[in-house]
Structure formats: structure tokens, C-alpha cells
């Protein structure tokens, strides 16, 4: 085994950490949707990974349809919206009936939605994997080559904090955000005050689907777009959400960073076992602190 292959150079380690950080932004976008719907709707939505996958497929189609470099940017705008609207339909059609069901039933029902959408995806896009070109190519370097990374990863790295800041602003400084927080705390009281908590639930769910779709659209140029991609990110996102503390946005952010950096450093230490690292980290953190590193809402 290549556990102690050759020690990597310092600049490689630094760059690898930054690539890991940029990837954890995508994980964050899926995880934050999950954690917000847990915090407000009290539903663990297994279908969130599927919305991420749909975001990637939709982005691929839109980019192909528009064409050129502009195609990607248009896709980045449209794909998450499409996925968000689809999420709205799922909320109205199915999720609304689940709010009072036992947790296990909710998990399994949203999982059944996953199966359904996986097949719809196969019907529309076929079973072959798709790939698309990144709008930015080449590498950028900082600090005399101490840090070098693909330009596209830089875009990812910037997008994560932007999403987090936007979400923070929405929840803390807008009227709707205040009602969302109130609904998370006491739904009946919100209803009693004459506000429509059903509408708030729909908005929150749509937002979580939008973010998952955005993550999918952003990851699309860097990976093979396949039907199984939603399942792979979902299990990581679920663990991120638990490790971060159920319903805690900043916890999800922090846990995403830990997962992403852990995996990319794992890639340096033992390339073959890189995928083991996030699960090992999650296991250790959950043994130490079962309710998550930050405050859980449950």
C-alpha cells in the first residue's frame, strides 16, 4: 500500500487544501438545503441529492441549447430556477402530506421520490454520462507558485461564501426570513398570527431545491454527469448535516469544509482510500458529539 509514498511538497499540500475547499462549497450547497428543510420543515429530504443531479443535467441541456461559453452562464442562471420550480411542485404534490408522519416514513418516502426522478432522468437524458466544458480554463497561481489551482475551482471557492452570506442575509435581515425563523420555532403561533406557514414551507423547500440545483449546475463542468451522482453526494450531505448539527446553517458550512479538506488531504496521504476519510471523520465526530459540532435545532 502507498500509505507513505513520497512526501508531497508544501505547495502541493496548500493547493490541495484549496481544491478541497472549493469542492466543499458544492457539498455545502446540497447540505445547506437539507439542513434548512430539517430546521424549518422538520423533514429529512433524501431527494435533495436528486435535485442536485437534476441541476447538473438541466445545466448540460441549457448550455448545449444556448451554445458557446455564454451557454454555461445562462445555464447557471436557468438550471437552478428550473429545479427550484420542480421542488415547488414536489412540495405541493407530496411533501405537504408528510409533515406529520414518523421520521422513518419521511425518509423512505423522499427516497421513493429519488427512485422516481432517477428514472425520469433516464427517460429524458438516457443512461450515458454527459460532460460539458468549463467556462474558465487553465490554472491560476498566487504567492510565487505556492498556491496554484484550476481557475474554475476559484469560481467555486468564491460561490460558496456568497451563497452562505446571501442565505444569512435572507434569514436574518428580510421579513420573509424572519417569518421563516418564527415558523421553525413555533409553527402554530405563526398560523395564529394570521401568517401563512404553508407558504413559508413551500418557499423554504423551493430554496433548498434551488441551492441543490445550483450546486449541480456548478459541478457539471468538472465531472461526468450521471444518474448515480445524486446518491453519492447525498450520503455525504446527510452526514455533513448531522455532524454540523441538524438545522444549523453554519454547522453545515463548517462540516462541509472539514469533509472537503479531509478528503483532499486524504488524496495526498492515501489516494486510494480518499473516499474513506469523510466517513471516518463523520464517525469520529459523531462518536465524540452525536448531536453535531454546533447547536442542533432538534
Amino acid at each position: 500500500m502507498e500509505f507513505f509514498a513520497n512526501l508531497p511538497e508544501f505547495s502541493t499540500v496548500i493547493s490541495q487544501i484549496f481544491v478541497g475547499l472549493s469542492r466543499s462549497m458544492i457539498l455545502f450547497m446540497v447540505a445547506v438545503g437539507l439542513t434548512v428543510s430539517i430546521g424549518v420543515l422538520r423533514v429529512i429530504n433524501f431527494a435533495n441529492g436528486t435535485f442536485y443531479m437534476l441541476g447538473a443535467f438541466t445545466a448540460w441541456s441549457v448550455a448545449l441549447w444556448v451554445g458557446g461559453t455564454a451557454g454555461f452562464w445562462v445555464a447557471l442562471l436557468i438550471a437552478p430556477l428550473v429545479v427550484g420550480l420542480l421542488g415547488l411542485a414536489v412540495e405541493a404534490g407530496l411533501l405537504r402530506r408528510l409533515y406529520n408522519r414518523p421520521r422513518l416514513m419521511q425518509l423512505l418516502l423522499t427516497y421513493a421520490v429519488v427512485l422516481l426522478f432517477n428514472d425520469v432522468t433516464k427517460l429524458i437524458w438516457g443512461v450515458d454520462f454527459k460532460s460539458m466544458r468549463a467556462p474558465l480554463s487553465g490554472y491560476i497561481t498566487f504567492f510565487d507558485g505556492l498556491l496554484y489551482m484550476p481557475s474554475y475551482n476559484m469560481l467555486l471557492l468564491i460561490s460558496g461564501p456568497l451563497v452562505a452570506a446571501g442565505l444569512w442575509y435572507f434569514i436574518n435581515h428580510t421579513m420573509t426570513g424572519k417569518i421563516v425563523r418564527a415558523t421553525a420555532t413555533d409553527r402554530e403561533m405563526v398560523d395564529a398570527l394570521g401568517l401563512n406557514s404553508n407558504k413559508i414551507f413551500a418557499i423554504v423547500f423551493m430554496l433548498s431545491c434551488y441551492l441543490a440545483g445550483l450546486g449541480g449546475a456548478l459541478i457539471a463542468p468538472t465531472t461526468n454527469i450521471v444518474v448515480g451522482m445524486g446518491m453519492t453526494i447525498l450520503i455525504n450531505a446527510v452526514l455533513v448535516v448531522v455532524v454540523g448539527g441538524l438545522g444549523n446553517i453554519w454547522g453545515a458550512f463548517l462540516a462541509s469544509l472539514i469533509f472537503g479538506v479531509g478528503e483532499s488531504l486524504g488524496l495526498l496521504i492515501a489516494p486510494r482510500f480518499a473516499i474513506v476519510f469523510p466517513f471516518a471523520i463523520a464517525t469520529i465526530l459523531l462518536i465524540l458529539k452525536p448531536t453535531g459540532i454546533m447547536k442542533s435545532v432538534w
Binding site: L239, A282, T283, L286
Partner: peptide, 8 residues
């Protein structure tokens, strides 16, 4: 936790 350990 069973999920995390199982996946590990």
C-alpha cells in the same frame, strides 16, 4: 451513526 459507520 449506524449510517456513518456502515458507510465507513
Amino acid at each position: 451513526l449506524t449510517l456513518a459507520m456502515g458507510q465507513l
